[in-house]
């Protein structure tokens, strides 16, 4: 008993000091006006009430939802498609896997700066490629309409991790199931629909949840590439929270935002869980 607690002691200490205490403080701050210089002053639910009428809060929430609900399904679909192609028993698949996987391990500032350059309307890669097809590319990050799509395109470049998870899932589907399906006369589509998809559904569901949570926390790209602009088109939730906290030092207001984010994430995850009960197939074990 004591031995066990000794082993998990690092986690217990970390939990208390870096999680439980901050969480308690964060709850408290969210009901205060607090700028770090003066002690927090209790203002009740004023932060939450003010947030409900803050257009930038709603804009940030909308931007984040837009980003999430478009990028996550696209990422799921494309990464599954690529994984299915890579799962074919042909030569050279390892090289292709490497190419698709590599960008996903490169992340952060370097990648954001690279895409800032790629999206340059006059001198960037994307509009150069579009011009080969006679298309005059949009202004991307300088356009309120195209800035979010640009961020979504950029996020798709990092789908390699999800693709590898899908590939591992595909490879763990027992070959006998396909053989049995073929004996029953199932064509390719039927095999995919009645064998692959059900067997892969726990993996897909896992991707769905983790991608959604990750998308809700999108930050670095927007901070580096646009600072939230143009016209707040890429003011994502965490960016607004960051600006509120660390540029305007409105820690109480920002703490309230953090808790709303928490409940949004929990709510969305619970919803996904409820839906998955009907759609995800778990092997009896």
């Amino acid at each position: 008993m004591y031995t066990a607690w000794l082993f998990i002691l690092p986690w217990v200490l970390g939990f208390l000091f870096f999680l439980a205490l901050p969480i308690a403080l964060s709850v408290y701050y969210s009901f205060t006006s607090f700028n770090v210089f003066q002690p927090p002053r209790w203002i009740g639910t004023a932060n939450f009430r003010a947030l409900s009428t803050d257009p930038l809060f709603w804009k940030a929430l909308y931007n984040t939802a837009y980003y999430t609900f478009i990028s996550v399904p696209l990422m799921m679909a494309i990464s599954l498609g690529v994984a299915l192609l890579l799962n074919s028993k042909l030569r050279g698949m390892r090289i292709f896997r490497t190419i698709f996987f590599l960008p996903s391990v490169l992340s952060g500032v370097g990648v954001a700066l690279l895409w800032l350059w790629i999206f340059n309307p006059d001198y960037g890669l994307i509009n150069l490629l579009l011009s080969y097809f006679g298309i005059e590319g949009p202004l991307w990050l300088y356009s309120p309409q195209w800035a979010k799509p640009a961020m979504i395109i950029m996020s798709l470049w990092g789908l390699g991790g999800v693709m590898v998870i899908n590939l591992a899932g595909l490879q763990s589907v027992p070959e006998q199931l396909y053989e049995a399906a073929r004996v029953d006369g199932a064509n390719n589509w039927a095999q995919f629909r009645y064998v692959t998809l059900p067997m892969l559904s726990p993996t897909l569901f896992f991707n769905f949840i983790t991608l959604t949570i990750g998308s809700f926390q999108v930050f670095t790209q927007a901070y580096i590439m646009t600072g939230g602009g143009p016209v707040h088109a890429t003011l994502f939730y965490v960016l607004y929270l960051f600006q509120t906290a660390f540029e305007n030092l409105r820690m109480g207001y920002a703490s309230a935002m953090a808790w709303i984010l928490f409940f949004v994430i929990v709510g969305v995850s619970l919803f996904q869980l409820a839906v998955s009960r009907r759609l995800v197939y778990y092997e009896e074990s």
Binding site: L19, P22, S26, I213, F216, L241, A258, F262
Partner: peptide, 16 residues
């Protein structure tokens, strides 16, 4: 604890 976004603890951690 995996469910808690780091933003929740970011501000108090900074203060601490």
């Amino acid at each position: 604890t995996l469910m808690i976004p780091s933003q929740v603890t970011m501000i108090p951690q900074f203060v601490i």
